[in-house]
């Protein structure tokens, strides 16, 4: 148990990775929502639209937390000196890669509905393997060019600003959702 715990990154290391996911997750949801709000406003009052926004923000918070948990879990498959030592840089890069891949897939979402069972088994596995390869290549690059670590770390740490903003919004959304579902009719 202790040896597993010792492989967990510190809270300071986890926050920037979470920040990357909140940045992409919340920004994407808000960006998509801008397409919808005008049509919602055609038949819903501002308060009702804000209720939908609350659901979306609460969900984005849950999503960002879960994805951060996934990266944390993924990191445990690597030796401590590879991942934990550079958790912010590697974790943030991985979070960025996953987010960008998700955005690309979202833009071609109809392709997903054509996947066969075989493709559905192979592609996610290939993506996981690609992520592992990405970590190995990146950790070599970070070892070879330490300046890259400093650059990625500084970007990730700046992203925490967004995290503070988005998490606050997500928490407000969460309160609204819980309230409506506890006290709704």
């Amino acid at each position: 148990m202790k040896s597993i715990q010792s492989r967990f990154p510190s809270r300071q290391q986890l926050l920037p990775v979470f920040a990357i996911f909140t940045f992409f997750g919340f920004s994407w949801s808000l960006y998509r929502m801008f397409w919808y709000v005008p049509s919602w406003l055609e038949y819903l009052s501002v308060w009702k639209v804000l209720t939908i926004v609350a659901y979306v923000l609460a969900f984005a918070l849950v999503e960002s937390l879960t994805m951060s948990g996934f990266v944390l879990l993924f990191s445990l498959f690597f030796p401590g000196q590879i991942f934990k030592a550079n958790y912010i840089a590697l974790g943030s890069s991985l979070a960025g890669l996953i987010s960008l891949a998700a955005i690309l897939i979202q833009r071609k979402i109809n392709l997903v509905y054509r996947l066969t069972l075989r493709q559905l088994a192979v592609y996610p596995l290939a993506f996981l393997l690609g992520m592992a390869l990405f970590v190995l290549v990146l950790s070599w690059l970070f070892w070879r060019f330490p300046i890259l670590v400093r650059i990625v770390n500084s970007i990730a740490e700046r992203m925490t600003l967004f995290a503070y903003l988005y998490v606050s919004l997500g928490l407000v959304g969460m309160l609204v959702v819980i309230g409506r579902n506890l006290f709704g009719s």
Binding site: W28, R32, F59, A102, Q106, R107, I109, Y113, L120
Partner: peptide, 18 residues
């Protein structure tokens, strides 16, 4: 049938549903 509002979980949902 269009880019979803959820960036990550929606893809997981699409894959499992498919």
């Amino acid at each position: 049938e269009e880019a979803h509002g959820s960036l990550f979980f929606s893809l997981l949902n699409d894959l499992t549903t498919q």
